[in-house]
Simulated assay, not measured.
Amino acid sequence: MIDPSESFGDMIEHALHILPVALALVLPVVAVGTALLYWVRRGSLSTTMTVLVLVPIVAMLTGVLGVSGFMFNATLTTMSLVCLLVMVVTLPVALLLGHAIARRSVWEREARERERAAEASRRELVAWISHDLRTPLAGIRAMAEALADGVVSSPGEVAGYATRIGGETRRLSGMVDDLFELSRITAGALQLTMSQVALREVVSDVLAAQVPVAQRKRVLVRAEAPTAPIVLGSDPELARVVGNLVSNAIRHTPPNGTVAVQLAIDGHDAILAVDDACGGIPDAELGRVFEVAFRGSAARTPSPAGEEQAGGGLGLAIAKGLVEAHKGRINAHNHGPGCRFEVRIPLAAV
């Protein structure tokens, strides 16, 4: 023990005398703690924080007990109790801090992974759209130059070129609309004007517009709506969901095939099911059909020569975003000669 009457020099001399003993006692504890930290480095962050807190406290307590010769007087007892109190207080704090840091680390890692996936999706989208834009633009440019140079002069040929230019222009306009809609969805800027919507009327209007397209491709469109579900939603956006699903089904159904649209009610949900005859989707691709710009493999029935080419691969992604904006769900699975896209939207409260 240090005598209070000792001078400052005596205190320094005493400290230098006990320093080698303290180091001899503390260093092994620190070495063991370091080895323990190395051993648990791949474990949970809470365990690492606990070891990190315990090592200096145990090292200090060991040094104090060793230097005092384990003479438990009032001063030593007080210091030991203080060390134990510090340990009791800091351990829960270390555990809470470890959990918080671990959660934040996991969140940051997941955020980085989502950002990398989103960036890869954006690059893929740009590549797809760039390719799809070049094709109709090249055709429009070639036909416009032919008309300007007088390569075609008969009224029939001029009318044919004009019709084809109009078709390519409509295709480009549709792609631009899809990009605008998708940008609103991904940016969270989609604002829906919600009201009670008769889903059967939406399906009827969409099919009236899609049947001529199906007839040109010799595809039969069949609708079954034994019930008339009323949902809370936005009429234009719901029409776009139905239109995207039906047009996608028609596009991937071969001539003389059938596209079936069905409405039903299941509990508190309205169900819209669209069946095609695409030949099925490989199981490895089913989880990706709603990704931006994903078009699948050759297992999907390709469009015959001369038919309307596939779009920019945005229709299903837009449909998914709009369905989720209505607090609904959409999924796809193989069914019969093709696949079924099923939408569930909560019914309106009556």
Rank of each mutant, 00 (worst) to 15 (best):
P236D: 04
M194D: 14
A225T: 07
Q191D: 13
Q215Y: 01
V202Q: 01
V211M: 12
V221G: 02
R216S: 13
D205L: 14
R251E: 10
R240L: 11
S247E: 14
V203M: 00
A228C: 04
Q210S: 12
A209I: 02
V203N: 00
Q210I: 13
K217C: 03
T193N: 12
T193W: 05
L190V: 11
S247W: 12
P226M: 03
V213K: 11
R200Y: 01
A214N: 08
A223I: 05
E224G: 00
V203H: 00
E224Y: 00
I230L: 15
D235F: 12
E237V: 03
L207T: 11
L192D: 09
V221L: 08
A214L: 10
I230W: 12
P226L: 02
A198L: 14
T227M: 07
L190N: 07
A214G: 09
V246Q: 07
S204L: 14
K217S: 06
Q215T: 11
K217M: 06
E237M: 07
A223Q: 11
A198K: 14
V241S: 07
I250W: 10
Q210Y: 06
I250L: 11
E224L: 03
N244V: 07
A214F: 10
R216N: 13
V219F: 06
A239V: 00
A239F: 01
R251G: 07
A208V: 15
E237T: 11
V242W: 00
L192H: 10
A228R: 03
V211Q: 13
G188N: 02
D205M: 12
S195E: 15
R251T: 10
A198R: 15
A208Q: 15
Q196I: 14
Q196H: 15
P226G: 08
I250A: 09
V202T: 05
V213G: 04
E224R: 04
D235G: 06
V213S: 09
M194E: 14
D205H: 14
R216D: 14
R251H: 13
V211D: 09
V242I: 01
S204K: 14
E224H: 04
A225R: 02
A198V: 12
G233E: 05
V242P: 04
R200E: 00
A249E: 05
R216Q: 15
S195A: 15
L220T: 13
V213D: 11
A239S: 10
A223K: 03
L199C: 08
S204D: 15
L232T: 06
L199P: 09
I230P: 06
G188V: 05
E224Q: 04
V213L: 13
P226F: 02
A187S: 15
E201H: 12
N248S: 12
N248Y: 10
E237Q: 10
A239T: 03
A189N: 15
R240F: 00
R222Y: 01
S204E: 15
S234R: 00
P236W: 04
V197M: 01
L245Q: 07
L220S: 12
Q215F: 01
I250C: 11
N248V: 08
V211I: 14
R216T: 13
D235W: 13
G233C: 08
L232M: 12
A187V: 00
L238F: 09
M194P: 09
T193E: 15
A209N: 05
V202F: 01
D235M: 09
P229Y: 01
V219A: 05
L220Q: 14
A198H: 14
E201T: 12
R218H: 15
